[in-house]
Amino acid sequence: MSDVVSEIFEVLNERGLHARPMTRLVQTASRFQSEMSVERDGQVANAKSVMGLLMLCCHKGARVTVRAEGPDAGAAVTAIGELFKSRFGESA
């Protein structure tokens, strides 16, 4: 059984999504079996590739679509969503 879940999140981090937040994103995405991607303005990156994510250049205020396909798709998108909402653990 395979679900497809996608949700749009806004980047709240003051300095955008640079290497450290993206590392957290990759580490989180890697815990799930689902195939995951992140899309911004028509550009899509594998959620398990740091370089690919960095190349999306997600600045503060950017709206990105997180998409998961697989048995744990819902949980995966929820977990990634938590990261966005908590500013990836950064203070600002």
């Binding site: 290497a19 590392t23 957290r24 990759v26 370089m51």
Partner: peptide
């Protein structure tokens, strides 16, 4: 975390 990021980059399929 920065080192973690660099380690992930070394494994990155893009690279």
């Amino acid at each position: 975390l920065i080192l973690e990021a660099h380690l992930l980059m070394l494994d990155d399929t893009l690279l």
